[in-house]
Design a binder for these strands. Structure first.
Lengths: 148, 148
DNA sequence: GGTTGCGCTGGAGTGCACTCCAGCTCCTAG
DNA sequence: CTAGGAGCTGGAGTGCACTCCAGCGCAACC
């Protein structure tokens, strides 16, 4: 087993890609961009990701998925030059993001309602037999229809 | 009032932009891309958006915001050549999108939890007085820390 | 001892969704 | 009658976030 050399539970980049769903290229790109720490390397220069970094990547993914731009994630990560300080600022950034997430939850609920309503409309139309090509209501073109 | 000429409640592009939050350029671009019908024009060539189209734009926005690519929205819109037919197919597309939205709701909940947990961690650190520059734990660099 | 697999670097390329602009036409108000 | 504001077209440009190489180094297996 090659994995058990070095720092116990550390993973190779391919394994991290598999577990996180990020591509190998993206992991390296994130590192170059400063979203992920410069991880340790093996003697031959291969990256080894300790559990703490894998966990950190999960946070980065949560931030990215919830719409935080790469530049902002970088700012978050690099606060205090990558050291464990400036907790207050990081806290503020996370709390801001939490608020943005709440907003997304609300928006998503609205959008889901819009889609559901439209689904209901189409279900009725289909149920009423107004499907397919038969009996096409040429004048009821959706481009200009002003019915409900 | 100029707006009351022509088709009753129709809006000019600027008003639609204001109401929807889309930019004027985006509205025109959506039209060229086939996400929005080719609306009526005034005698001088200006677009006039009837309420039905404004409502349709809201649906397009819901689809876009929930991650449907422009190409897919176009496919949805153009099913049946822009006529009121092919309801079954449109229904299927909308139901698929609804499922994707449910998935996003779940993912968002997970991500919110991740962020909240991290917030709790930082709150504890700050409460414990490990703020700012004072007493920097140089060895506890986050890049290599393996503590919980 | 070749070839297969994983990983490395630096830099170029891609896809998507807008966004901006020049140069024009109307219309209204002063 | 002119100045400002809204809108028009076609096409070029932008920003973001990856994604894809070419060309290389190791290590293991057959």
């Amino acid at each position: 087993m090659a994995g058990t050399t070095g720092v116990a539970e550390s993973l190779a980049i391919g394994q991290v890609a598999e577990r996180t769903g990020l591509s190998i290229d993206t992991l390296r790109w994130y590192e170059r961009q400063g979203l992920i720490p410069l991880v340790e390397r093996t003697a031959t220069g291969q990256r080894r990701y300790p559990p703490s970094v894998v966990r950190f990547i999960a946070l980065v993914q949560a931030l990215r998925r919830t719409g935080m731009p790469v530049a902002d994630v970088r700012a978050f990560v690099q606060l205090g030059g990558g050291q464990l300080r400036h907790h207050t600022e990081r806290l503020a950034l996370l709390e801001r993001q939490e608020r943005l997430i709440e907003e997304q939850v609300r928006q998503l609920a609205v959008d889901r309602e819009v889609v559901r309503d439209k689904i209901a409309v189409y279900r009725e139309l289909v149920a009423a037999g107004l499907d397919c090509e038969d009996q096409p209501p040429e004048d009821a073109d959706w481009r200009t229809s002003r019915g409900s």
